[in-house]
Design a protein around this nucleic acid. Structure first.
Length: 498
RNA sequence: GGUCCAGUAACUCAGCGGUAGAGUAUCUGCCUUUUAAGCAGAGAGUCGUUGGUUCGAGUCCAACCUGGAUCACCA
């Protein structure tokens, strides 16, 4: 957009030459920082009374020069502090350097702490040195404290620019930086939570010869040496299950999945997924761990119970609701399909102009009705159970009803947050279900599962009964940081090349 | 992919078919306790792109590009 030099860049390059001519290296190797800004912001009185000399380093974010004195603010990761630079304290030569500094430069500043006449805690500079010369001016953002609240002027707020140049967003919008700090804490807390339960974090291939574990179209790439196409994984499921066959009893993976689908407010082509598998557990075990973990994150990481999300108030402190899909369909769509009557289901869909493909079975139709009539109405966290087996090719059937899968999805504010089942471990049943998926594929369903013979062979060696769970981490972070767009919680969301 | 909205200076934005604007930022001058510093002055633009209508287009029309919202698809 502005790659060629504008007036600002030309001026700064001239300053760079002046600095070099004065024998100053604008990009020195070493910094002599002794303290962080955060260090001197704590326990201010003792810093002032001790008059201990410190050297701070950071980015100069504001300059207010007036004749032979000047003020600036420097910021490092721990905070921001005002510096007071006076010619009679730093000397004429060093003051000339200060005059060549711009907002955006990295500097290190030696001095002692004091309060100015206006009462602002500041560093009284005795020496200022350049650490990195800035060539491209930062967008101007000013702020003012009004009644303890920070009012910001000319914010860097263009959404496209914020995503494309995230470094500027982080630098200029501290609130947005906070979102990613929270994200990191959430992910870290998930690890500790699962580790404390005895789960083992593992890494499985991103590049897979066959993809599976979800319904989605994959990205395809090519390995030159093997001269073979490989897929970027759409899920980690089938590899994690192999590990349970291998004797691990509780494994999880936190990592990126890739799905070659549309992008919108809740979908990015690469996204972070948590998958967890626990042997000898089942759906109830997964419900318990999901609810406990999400509440733990809300209460102990974010430290709130109520979240504003998509125009709703979501309460993560109260017990999550549990309801079966057929009951919900009955309640919200007014049709009882517990008899799995295909004709009535189809008539209902047609009557409500719901789009259904001709190869869809009654289970798929029930899911379509659920999505159209129920999903958006589930605001408070709700475990929707008893999915049709037909649309759950990797889940075990319910013992008391072979049409239903022992599966749940957690819906919050009309969006899916988690998906779990009692995992199917009958190798022959699993083969039959994958082959049924393959038939759908042959009929043109590009998102149907493929038959993974290696996985089926692993199942034949025996996989213990277990519960499995997947949680979309980006969406969870959206909820916990109260953001309505996935792009707000992914540092570098996918954008079209400029 | 459909529909709607937006794109003008580094940032945030005005702009009625008739010479391209403001605030901040920047530059120059004055200024030794400022803090959205102040005062005085100055510079800064291929108005997203390409066509068209018109004596004349930032403004009207068309197509395209990028982003957003929404619907569809998608878990």
């Amino acid at each position: 957009m502005q790659s060629r030099d504008n007036q600002f860049i030309q001026l700064r390059k001239q300053k760079l030459e002046k600095l070099r001519a004065a024998g100053i290296n604008p990009y020195p190797v070493k910094s002599a920082r002794t303290h962080s800004v955060g260090d001197v912001l704590a326990d201010r009185e003792s810093w002032i009374s001790s008059q201990q000399e410190v050297c701070l380093a950071g980015r100069l974010v504001a300059m207010r020069r007036q004749g032979r004195i000047g003020f600036g603010n420097i910021e490092d990761a721990s905070g921001r502090i005002q510096i007071y630079v006076a010619q009679n304290l730093v000397g004429e030569e060093n003051y000339e350097l200060f005059k060549l500094c711009d907002a955006g430069d990295f500097v290190q500043v030696g001095g002692t702490l004091f309060n100015t006449e206006a009462g602002e805690y500041s560093l009284k500079t005795i020496r200022i040195e350049l650490l990195t010369k800035n060539l491209r001016p930062l967008p101007a953002v000013k702020e003012k404290l009004v009644d303890g609240k920070t009012v910001r002027y000319d914010e860097f707020s263009d959404i496209e620019l914020r995503y494309r140049k995230r470094y500027l967003d982080l630098l200029l919008n501290p609130g947005n930086r906070q979102v990613f700090i929270q994200r990191s804490r959430v992910i870290s807390a998930i690890r500790s939570f699962l580790d404390a339960k005895g789960c083992l974090e593992v890494e499985t291939p991103v590049l897979q010869p066959l993809y599976g574990g979800a319904n989605a179209r994959p990205f395809v790439t090519h390995h030159n040496t093997l001269d073979t196409d490989l897929y970027l994984r759409i899920a980690t499921e089938l590899y994690l299950k192999r590990l349970i066959v291998g004797g691990f009893e509780a494994v999880y993976e936190l990592g990126k999945d890739f799905r070659n689908e549309g992008m919108d407010r809740t979908h990015n082509p690469e996204f972070t997924m948590l998958e967890l598998y626990v042997a000898y557990s089942d759906l109830d075990g997964m419900i318990a761990v999901t609810e406990e973990m999400i509440r733990h994150l809300a209460q102990n990481v974010i430290r709130k119970d109520i979240y504003n999300f998509r125009g709703h108030q979501v309460n993560l402190a109260q017990p999550f609701i549990r309801a079966s899909m057929l009951d919900l369909v009955k309640e919200h769509a007014g049709i009882d399909l517990s008899d799995f009557d295909y004709g009535r289901a189809l008539a209902f869909c047609k009557g409500h102009k719901l789009e259904v493909s001709p190869e869809a079975g009654v289970g798929k139709l029930i899911a379509v009705i659920f999505e159209a009539f129920v999903e958006e109405k589930l605001i408070q966290p709700t475990f929707v159970t008893d999915f049709p087996k037909e649309i759950s090719p990797l889940a075990k059937a319910k013992p008391d009803n072979p049409q239903l899968a022992d599966r749940f999805e957690l819906i919050i504010a009309g969006h899916e947050f988690a998906n779990a089942f009692s995992e199917l471990n009958d190798p022959l049943d699993q083969r039959a279900r994958l082959e049924a998926q393959a038939r759908l594929r042959a009929l043109g369903d590009e998102e149907a599962n493929v038959v993974d013979e290696d996985f089926l062979e692993a199942l034949e060696y025996g996989m213990p009964p277990m519960g499995g769970l997947g949680i979309g981490i980006d969406r969870l972070v959206m909820l916990l940081t109260e953001n309505d767009s996935i792009k707000e919680v992914i540092l570098f969301p996918q954008m079209k090349p400029e």
